[in-house]
Design a protein around this nucleic acid. Sequence first.
DNA 1: CCCGTAATATTCGGCGTGGAGTAATCGGTG
DNA 2: CACCGATTACTCCACGCCGAATATTACGGG
Lengths: 190, 190
Amino acid sequence: MTTVTPLGISVLALLAERPMHPYEMYRLLLERHEDRRVKVRPGSLYHTVARMAEIGLVEATGTDRDGGRPERTTYQITDAGHQALTDRIRALLATPEYEYPQFPVALGEAHNLPRHEVVELLTARVRRIEGELTESASLLRTAADRKVEEAYLLAARYLQAQLTTELTWLTDLIGRLERKELRWPNEDAL
Amino acid sequence: MTTVTPLGISVLALLAERPMHPYEMYRLLLERHEDRRVKVRPGSLYHTVARMAEIGLVEATGTDRDGGRPERTTYQITDAGHQALTDRIRALLATPEYEYPQFPVALGEAHNLPRHEVVELLTARVRRIEGELTESASLLRTAADRKVEEAYLLAARYLQAQLTTELTWLTDLIGRLERKELRWPNEDAL
DNA sequence: CCCGTAATATTCGGCGTGGAGTAATCGGTG
DNA sequence: CACCGATTACTCCACGCCGAATATTACGGG
């Protein structure tokens, strides 16, 4: 049961535009900054394309050569590939899946550190999140200036909302820790 | 460079309480519902413990036997293990890391589906998130009734805040899609 | 025209994960 | 007291991912 990974989705989406070879996908993904949403490594990309060719979601359409470069295998999407792409998008949109983010794990084990250190660490986190938020805000502004359709900015807007929530939640928590409104376990043992 | 995985953190945290054998860790993790925060599979657990023993974060302290059962190897945490545990927690608290959640990927490719279907799918998502929110709220209420320290509920509170944000963001998006305030690409081609 | 560096294009090996499988023993039922 | 399912306890393998390595060609400077 080979499932379509996130990088697989990107590959299928690119091949739905037009046939191309793996290195071109790689270039395009970086150019469009899709590597912000999806982890893109050359190794994974080639492997992903090969795997999807095996299960018939894409197929090689021959090898072209440009100049004296190594010959490149061009791929195109199949009917099954189109089906798999839309099915996967549908499933991801309709069903929230817990993906085990690491920060909650750290929060759950934070009591292994003394209160004052947790305050310091979370304050550093807040600063970094503020930085990411301003960066993402400026990216969104330039995109809006360039009349990029709002429909293509949904992911960025969503992530901004999540980051903003984390920021206010953290600020509140830090305050409660500093004012000692929140009891801290083993306060003396640490 | 073997890094300490989330399951590795849990293992170290358990062994910081007292020495135990892998199967006992497994039982405890399930009993404490830590498998909600961390992915726990027997296979991964044994492998993780073995790996950490190799790099000296934990060490076997001998084998005990209970009844006629297969003999179990008990492990304890080392000084290096304590160090690694607190270091990892510190790093995770202080530095936000993007972990490539799948939903933004799906949002970014949602334009491959017709508008009305996206509305349906996101509405289904909203219903499921509402379900999760009420479930998590009732868990938090019973925990509060049992006088569980607030410090141990941080992760659950954080996740609730994030889910709530997603809910309102989605509701707003669905509204804009329905009222056609949001242009949808290839509106006719699909 | 030669050299080094960047870009092109891909392969390979090892790691962590997860699901399925195994095997023995305990506990309860008829 | 024989059987059967649940529990205990662990092993193994295949999969996807990632970083490193590789090999070739284009390009710009001296």
